[in-house]
Design a protein around this nucleic acid. Structure first.
Length: 674
DNA sequence: GAAATCATACTTTTT
DNA sequence: GTATGATTTC
């Protein structure tokens, strides 16, 4: 996916960044200016100049990005030196540090990590426990929202009431309930040695704050390299400050024009303030080595309209190429056809599928295209969007496995017990508190009448399965452990939501992936901290050898580049998404999103705009689904593209013909004549 | 207290 | 079109 050729010879501006040796450094690297090459070279440079790789920390946005950086640095300097340096996401690194040093601040090393869905479940559970049923018929915030609110409070370090006012005004009057729920949630997590994503960062910060652990960490990392700095949040910036406090030198790389994670409380302030806050030198990379001048002219024009000014335009260094095309199609279906035709054209002209990508704002934007691709037998791998982990059957498997590792995992019990006929939320809750206090006393629970008779068998089967998988002999054989619980699991899979066969296949794939893990708990942690990013990730390697096209959300395409890029659904409501047009800031972020998408292209860029949507009229006053072309494609921008109408347009010709209309009129007339 | 039915926000991007 | 929560039913 990341195919950019390393730049053999560094430019002057890159060279300065690579060899900088006077404290903290900020590299403002515009799109395609050789950011990865520069970071790689700097890593290699550090190692060659004698820094112990063990004392280098690479903070990236995904584990994939970290391993790629390390691999490339290795090829530069040879040997396996670089493989010893630390790398990964903020969360993954926090996880490692806390397992090693957490004990000193009261974190048991065997904590489990809650993913967002778990956190939401727990919050909902506690809210119900706490305020029982609220008076009146008032409708409460849904549980996903609870995690969002709390997470924003923590990551942006902003008080609850302010977060509510600014971002969630419609649930402002639930503030008191929310506060109580959040407190109970925190207490419960602490009591059960469970950390959520935000806790990982908070406790990492605590490692810096506590004198004992800070002493341990002094000198632990000499150099910290942070990628995609524009997408970090306030809490993460504080973490860097903590690292500086232990003697680390920071190199941050980012581009304020590519900041697209505001919804996760990321703030451009981080990159804007870095220079002063960390007393850092700033180097700008402005020469774009990736795209043709024609493509750059268009992307520069898109950013020119941003309400917030950014660095000056990028300068192209590549020779002239083809102008980007703005392709309008009659509707979504024609758009898919147009995309496929261009893909095949480029394949014929010598660009393999792996060097082509189709990008879009939201995951389901590719639904129709996926059908068309399958029909034409064009292989693809999709990145981003609904994750594997969120599917009910996968969560079920994960919960059983968590119980194998930790028999008192309340959340897991709570979820699984409800899979059993005759057990709902109320019985599940009572059983959970029983099982959590008196381990393994299922028999006692049955005697106490906590289970209705018809549910006994299913529950016994579940407990047996877990016991079988938890025998000491299997501890280092995750796949075998999964096998033990499969019989029970397979009996409940798909009962609620159907689609049984596909779900069983998913479980098979997970089992295959688990076989590669050293232990079950390691497998589970990896799964939550570094979930499979693409549909192909778990399918095993054969998939990846094949020539395949990349489909990706724009968010997941960050950092990637392809020879041919097609961006689809450039219509108002889709990009900008109509869910994100509430404030000027949000619209600006949507614009940057488009900018990120367009700047992924090296040689050929196509922007697709369907003019009509059959399925979903975006607005009531637009009942026929006619679309406005994205507001970001202004006349100025369109001056830099060739406009292609996929087909002579008379959208009305596509309206379904009401075959009985004439007959109805005739019937009416004849009835009047009677 | 579980299961079935109903009503109504909400619909995205990810560690 | 969907998923979650509230309500009613068994």
């Amino acid at each position: 996916m990341f195919v950019d050729a390393p730049i053999a010879v560094l430019t002057d501006e890159q060279e300065r960044a690579v060899t900088h040796d006077a404290g903290n450094l900020l590299i403002v690297a515009g799109a395609g200016t050789g950011k990865t090459a520069t970071l790689t070279a700097r890593l290699a440079h550090l190692v060659e100049s004698g820094v112990d790789p063990e004392r280098i920390l690479l903070l990236t946005f995904s584990r994939r990005a970290a391993t790629e950086l390390i691999d490339r640095a290795e090829t530069l300097i040879g040997g396996s030196l670089a493989s010893r340096c630390w790398g990964g996401t903020f969360h993954a690194v926090a996880n490692r540090l806390l397992r090693r040093y957490g004990q000193a601040i009261g974190i048991a090393p065997d904590f489990t990590v809650l993913d967002q869905a778990d956190a939401a479940d727990l919050l909902a559970l506690l809210r119900d426990e706490h305020d029982g049923r609220p008076e009146g018929t008032r409708r409460r915030a849904r549980k996903d929202l609870l995690t969002q609110v709390l997470s924003r409070v923590i990551n942006s370090r902003t008080p609850l009431s302010e977060v509510l006012d600014r971002h969630y005004p419609w649930i402002r009057d639930e503030r008191d309930d929310l506060r109580e729920t959040f407190k109970a949630y925190t207490a419960r997590k602490r009591a059960h040695h469970v950390l959520d994503y935000d806790d990982l960062l908070l406790f990492w910060a605590a490692l810096h704050d506590a004198p004992q652990t800070q002493a341990l960490l002094i000198g632990r990392f000499e150099h910290v390299l942070v990628d995609e700095y524009q997408d970090t949040n306030a809490l993460q910036a504080d973490l860097l400050e903590g690292l500086v406090g232990t003697g680390a030198t920071i190199t941050a790389v980012g581009d304020d024009a590519q900041s697209i994670y505001g919804f996760r409380a990321a703030t451009v302030r981080n990159i804007l303030d870095f220079g002063t806050r960390f007393d850092a030198d700033v180097v700008h990379l402005t020469r774009n080595h990736r795209s043709t001048p024609e493509i750059l002219a268009m992307t520069n024009a898109v950013m020119a309209d941003a309400s917030e000014r950014h660095e000056k335009d990028l300068v192209a260094v590549r020779p002239a190429g083809a102008r980007p095309e703005l392709v309008s199609s009659a509707d979504e279906h024609r758009q898919s056809v147009a995309v496929c035709e261009r893909i095949l054209e480029h394949v014929e002209r010598g660009t393999p599928l792996t060097r082509q990508a189709v990008l879009f704002r939201t995951s389901h934007h590719s639904d129709l295209l996926e059908l068309e691709l399958s029909a034409r037998k064009i292989p693809f791998v999709k990145f981003g969007g609904l994750r594997f982990l969120e599917a009910a059957h996968v969560k079920d498997l994960v919960c059983v496995l968590r119980l194998v590792c930790n028999p008192v995992d309340e959340l897991a019990w709570f979820r699984l017990l409800q899979r059993i006929d005759g057990v709902g939320p109320a019985r599940a809750r009572r059983l959970v508190s029983h099982l959590a206090t008196e381990r393994n006393s299922l028999a006692a629970a049955i005697e106490l009448g906590l289970l209705p008779p018809e549910a006994v068998d299913g529950t016994v089967d579940l407990v047996d399965a877990i016991d079988r998988a938890a025998v000491p002999g299997l501890v280092n054989a995750p796949a075998a452990q999964i096998e033990c619980v499969r019989t029970w699991l397979d009996s409940v899979v798909g009962v609620q939501h159907g689609n049984r066969d596909a779900r069983l296949a998913d479980l098979d794939r997970l089992q295959g992936a688990a076989a590669l893990s050293p232990s079950l708990s390691q497998f589970l942690t990896d799964l939550t901290l570094d979930p499979p990013a693409s549909t192909g990730d778990l399918a095993g390697t054969p998939h990846l050898d094949d020539d395949h096209l990349t489909l990706s959300t724009i968010h997941s395409a960050k950092g990637g580049e392809w020879d041919v890029v097609q961006v689809i659904h450039l219509a108002d409501g889709n990009l900008p998404s109509d869910l994100a047009t509430g404030s000027p800031e949000e619209i600006d972020e949507e614009r940057r999103l488009l900018y990120v998408a367009l700047t992924r292209a090296r040689d050929h860029l196509y922007a697709h705009a369907p003019l009509r949507y059959h399925h979903r009229p975006r607005r009531r006053d637009d009942a026929h689904g006619y679309a406005q072309i994205s507001r970001f494609l202004t006349d100025e921008v369109r001056g830099h593209v060739d406009e292609v109408a996929e087909r002579v347009l008379d959208p009305r010709a596509d309206l379904p013909v009401a075959t009985d209309a004439v007959a109805n009129v005739d019937a009416l007339v004849s009835s009047l004549l009677d």
